[in-house]
Design a protein around this nucleic acid. Structure first.
Lengths: 185, 185
DNA sequence: GTCTATATTGGGATAGAC
DNA sequence: GTCTATCCCAATATAGAC
C-alpha cells in the first residue's frame, strides 16, 4: 500500500488510454468528447485533463507505439538483403500487425479524418508507407506495383469483416492474399 | 430578369451539396460545420438551413445517388447468367465507380465515422456489399473469397494514392489488379 | 430566398478546494 | 489525484425582418 499515489496515477492514465481507444474506434475521434471518455471511465473531465493536456495528446499517446512498431518492422526488413525473403518478412509482419489490430489503433489510424488533419501524425504515417513501398519494390516501383502495395496497406478493412475467424486462420488467409497481390504485381 | 426563384433555389441547393461534399471529404463530416459550409459558399448559415433541415440531411442527399448507382450496378449484374461474364462486369463497373469517385462520396463513404453511426446509411451499404459478394462468389463464399472481395471493396484508397495517373491508365491498372485478386481467390 | 439576431446546448479547457 | 465550479467559445438550429 506504500506506493499508492504513483501506482494509482499509472492505473488511471492507462484507463484513459484504453477507454479513449475504444471510443475513438467506435465513434471516431471528432465525435468522442472528453465528457464521454470521463463518464465511461467513471471519473470527471478534470481528472482526464490531469493526465493529458489536450484531447489530441491522448491520440498522440495512443498512436506513438503503433508508429514505433511500424518503424521497427521496416528497420528489420531493411537488414534482409535477399529480395524474396524481405518481401516475405514484410508481408508476414504486416499481417501480424493487422491481426492484432484490435489492440492498436491500426484500423482507425488511416481512416479517421483526424489523421489527415493532424500534420505530425499524417506525415509520419506517409513517410513510413513510402519507405515500405521502396523496401518491397525498390526505388522505382511500377504503377502496378504501387497499386498492389497501396491495396495491401489497407488490410484493416478485411480484418474487420472476417472477425469470426480464429487469429490463426485469419493470419493464414491474409498472408496468402497478400502474397498473391504482391507477387503478381 | 427571367431568373426565377425556382432556378435560383436549384442553383443554391446544388451549391450547398457541392461545397459540403468537398468539405466532408477534406475535413470529415464531424469536423465540417455548417458555418464553414456557409462561409465557403459565401452565404449565411440560415440560408443553408433553408434547404436542409439538418446537417445529416445534407449527407443523406449526397449519399443517395451513390447508393442508387451501386444498387443499379448489382441489378445489372444479376441479369447476367454467365458466371465469368458477371464477375467481369462487376469488376469493370466497380472500377468505373471508384475512378469517378471524386464526383461521388465513395472514398469517404466507408471510412468516415459518421457512416458507422448512421444506421440507415450503414445498413444500406452493408446490404449492398453482401449482395455484391453473393453475386461474385455464390451464396456460400469461401473465406479466401470473402477476403478477396472485402479487399477489393476498398479500392478507393488505391485511387487516392495514384492520383497522378490519367483516368484511363488508372482504370486499366485497377481492373487488372481486381482480376488478379478476385480470380485467384 | 436570404439576411440578422438569438436561443440553446455541448465542446475543450482551467482554477482552486479537498 | 480527484473533485466542483466555471469560463469561453463554437456548434446546431430557429424566429422573424426584408
Amino acid at each position: 500500500m506504500a506506493v499508492t499515489r504513483a501506482a494509482q496515477a499509472e492505473k488511471t492514465r492507462q484507463a484513459v488510454l484504453d477507454t479513449a481507444r475504444r471510443l475513438f474506434l467506435e465513434h471516431g475521434f471528432d465525435a468522442t468528447s472528453l465528457q464521454l471518455i470521463a463518464d465511461t471511465m467513471g471519473v470527471t473531465k478534470a481528472n482526464v485533463y490531469y493526465y493529458f493536456r489536450t484531447k489530441i495528446a491522448i491520440l498522440e499517446a495512443l498512436l506513438a507505439p503503433t508508429v514505433e512498431a511500424l518503424a521497427e518492422r521496416l528497420d528489420a526488413a531493411e537488414r534482409i538483403t535477399d529480395r524474396d525473403e524481405r518481401v516475405e518478412h514484410l508481408i508476414t509482419t504486416w499481417v501480424d500487425q493487422v491481426v492484432t489490430a484490435y489492440r492498436t489503433l491500426a484500423p482507425m489510424s488511416r481512416h479517421d479524418p483526424i489523421v489527415r488533419r493532424h500534420e505530425k501524425i499524417s506525415r509520419a504515417l506517409a513517410e513510413l508507407s513510402e519507405r515500405g513501398l521502396r523496401l518491397m519494390f525498390g526505388s522505382d516501383p511500377t504503377v502496378s506495383q504501387q497499386a498492389a502495395y497501396w491495396l495491401i496497406s489497407d488490410l484493416g478493412v478485411v480484418n474487420r469483416r472476417l472477425d469470426t475467424l480464429s487469429d490463426d486462420d485469419l493470419r493464414t488467409t491474409l498472408v496468402e492474399l497478400c502474397r498473391r497481390v504482391i507477387r503478381g504485381a
